[in-house]
Nucleic acid binder design. Sequence first.
DNA 1: GTCCCTGCAAAAGTTTTGCATTGCG
DNA 2: CGCAATGCAAAACTTTTGCAGGGAC
Lengths: 133, 133
Amino acid sequence: MLDATRPFRLTPQRAAVFQVVRDACDHPTAREIYARVKACQPGIGFATVYRTLNLLAAHREILELQLGDDAVARYDANTAPHDHILCTSCGAIADINVPLPESTTRQAARESGFEVEGYELQFLGRCAGCVTQ
Amino acid sequence: MLDATRPFRLTPQRAAVFQVVRDACDHPTAREIYARVKACQPGIGFATVYRTLNLLAAHREILELQLGDDAVARYDANTAPHDHILCTSCGAIADINVPLPESTTRQAARESGFEVEGYELQFLGRCAGCVTQ
DNA sequence: GTCCCTGCAAAAGTTTTGCATTGCG
DNA sequence: CGCAATGCAAAACTTTTGCAGGGAC
């Protein structure tokens, strides 16, 4: 993944941040990542975490997501195109993969006159646990 | 739209904020709305604008949107379900209407185990003006 | 009079930036 | 040595909250 061939230096702090994002299965915020990185890099500062997340996102090593109406960035080590679903009850976030039909993208282009490059799709609902409660 | 039958008072400040959002065709931010409202309500404060936008959104008179990776809320007086497309070059935002096939929603439910209540779909691309440049 | 609303200021929260220091290459 | 990266603190920015004053009913 990250090695000497990258156009940026792989410092222990950066490696720790990247490891935390890869190990996470809950789309953590920068603050949550900071707390987890503290476990193995106690001296790390906020700024380094933010700078590293921006660096990794700029190099497409991770994704920066804006989910729900939170106004807080979340991070995802799964860089393959995929979608998300959010539980409106408990806030859980899950990865899903529901490609749009080609016709839908074509319709978006036709309606808007835009050249479509991609899309972001999030579903809202209630997770299995919250439904049975 | 807003009249005496609403469960909240229609003050001149609130009417001005609502009017600005309805007249806007660019999905303005709270700060932009504040600047425009100043034109007819020079004494209005930030807090009143934010409180009014939250009030109107809570009563489904307007929509609060989180578009792109901006981490800033935008507002839309079009409360009918619809989608958006963003120009990655100039930042333009357009409304579009591309309903997802039923099968796509069903697939999301099946993959996640969630009870799907809705979705948000944004396309990314380049607008006609930016393409020809 | 009561209650809701407003405006101002301060607070809260996230993210960025400035700068001196550190440490790899 | 030279340059990039770090850590700390302060700043920038959006949004919320506390509170005293004022207006509507």
